[in-house]
Design a protein around this nucleic acid. Sequence first.
DNA 1: CAGGAAATGAGGTACGCACCTCAAAAATGC
DNA 2: GCATTTTTGAGGTGCGTACCTCATTTCCTG
Lengths: 355, 355
Amino acid sequence: MRPTVTDIAREAGVSLATVDRVLNARPGVREKTILAVNEAIARLGYVRDLTAANLARGRSYRVAVILPDSESQFIQSLADALIEAGSVAATSRIELRLHRFPAEDPHQLAALLASLPESDYVGVALMAQETPVLRDAVRLLRSKGIPVVALVSNLPNAACDHFVGIDNCAAGRTAGVLMGRFLGGGPGQVMVLGQSLLARDMVDRRRGFDEVMLRDFPGLDVLPSLETHGSGRTLRDVVTRRLANSPQVRGIYAMGDGHRALTQLIDEYGLSGRITVICHELTAHVRTALEQGTVTAVITQNLGHLARSTLRVLRAKADNLPLDEGQEQIRIEIVLRENLPPQSDSHRSSAETAA
Amino acid sequence: MRPTVTDIAREAGVSLATVDRVLNARPGVREKTILAVNEAIARLGYVRDLTAANLARGRSYRVAVILPDSESQFIQSLADALIEAGSVAATSRIELRLHRFPAEDPHQLAALLASLPESDYVGVALMAQETPVLRDAVRLLRSKGIPVVALVSNLPNAACDHFVGIDNCAAGRTAGVLMGRFLGGGPGQVMVLGQSLLARDMVDRRRGFDEVMLRDFPGLDVLPSLETHGSGRTLRDVVTRRLANSPQVRGIYAMGDGHRALTQLIDEYGLSGRITVICHELTAHVRTALEQGTVTAVITQNLGHLARSTLRVLRAKADNLPLDEGQEQIRIEIVLRENLPPQSDSHRSSAETAA
DNA sequence: CAGGAAATGAGGTACGCACCTCAAAAATGC
DNA sequence: GCATTTTTGAGGTGCGTACCTCATTTCCTG
């Protein structure tokens, strides 16, 4: 049997109330007594039963997670992962509320943030592009004492409490090494696609990609980024034109999502398997493309981890506890056809923290 | 506030005792009443507070994890991860006991298994080579109703309840694609190293590796496996000899651990960075080699996941609950210098306990 | 050594649930 | 309708901890 507070009291020769005072850092205990209790704790190897403690505390953590209102597979999967993580975390008194906002409307987002009843929430997680309006809204929230963490996309200037996501620069570098090595260092041209050259994530990925390409694979010619604006038709147009003009294209680095139009185009041109395609985020569609050989490699992040980390971080921030930075680091995963994880039929990628 | 059993009782118009009977599937409740209670549960969206339930039950899951008594970094890290996961899981009344056995003595292992007090343990996780003696010991344990899961190394013929680890064949295939693509498909020779050609893991990895190399990269000449028997000196000898005889070696696939001798040798020969080296398991030493460019890529598994999955699976088996197979799948991770996760200085088991 | 402050003890309640007992009510068989 | 069985209710106890109150003891200071 694990020792309990009662055992400590007996072992230390003090009363339960004193043990409680020491354990919960309540005032009114002599230094000497504190020491005696701590020694007893150490001797018995006592570890506080957190479940009982939280039960007694009756504390609950209501957390808001705010995602853009996009139908993209990535966002959907992320939402699923969050809901799943939330339902698991419910056993640890965490309650997750998912909100959406129109992807292109920073003002509505700001309004949403402002409308959150401050007393109800112990923290907010937010996936959004950084804008001045958003920065102010975040500042306001934080001034009310509500921690804010950035999700997937960092908000470097909004002074968030934490960023949950991958280092996009490193992700770009990873894509670069893979592209460079898969193409044997050259010669050839590499096409780069991104939704918008303004989005921070795209910029970071591009920077990382270029860094590696320039340094390690000078034989490869990396073409200027093409903007797709998240539209399949635009993508079609710009890629078709580029392919016509640049016959040496042997690799494509797709920095954003919206890969459906891309893979379709590649298939039409009969380039599947003959061109090295590296993209981000292992959505259902990308998974298929990977299996069929249209996509060569995917740089991705585990959405289950992302979701759980978000909740852990918010909880820690709410309790003003330190984070284990190492643990909260989201890994940059590389997925090839050969290490494709089996399809998890439920989107229940989570439940991991439950154990 | 989350609804409680009392709320259900009120909502369903029955007493607390009846709700309890329904919730815990105790007999003596009319079908009609059960339905009414379940409807109330659905209406209120009640979810059992598992922590309170477990607290009240006073149930605890004592689990034995048995590892070979090796000082290898991999085993050490695995042990650390298990201890860490165990300390976290302590909050869900899981108690982990770590045992070691002399790596080369299956009889001692069997004796250890036989000596486990059957009433104290709800499950056993085991990392070991499969031998007839072990098979019998496992059978005995399972006949006593104690679930046994294989850890890292599968025990296909011992009829375990589960295997926690990666598909080594797929891992070999992954190594194969990377090697093939990194070498541009040839020409050249590839050296393959393994501790022992008898070990099941090595066989599987080799099979997967060969499968891909033969199919996709016929231009590369994969040499017969060299056995190191886990000894640095043996490795040194065989690799030196092979390098002398095969000047075309452009890649090395190290299927097992014991990479210290290998990287040292590569450095001595001035081959660091000029030869593609792929190995398994991201230990501290491999991490350094990766950073320095001596090792090109590492196929690894996340030991944290492995450890948590082990506990989850054992717990589920003990309660006779179904597993979420998708979740318990351990991913085959690819690590390059560019996506090397930051060093987690966390052997600080306490950090996560709080989370 | 008195007086006040600080430290400690004893005891209670609550958290949400599991599990138990015994009596009362309802349904069932004849 | 009666006896019998089944179902239900009421109530209690305990899990390990938090947090509270109030009395009592110990300590320190002048």
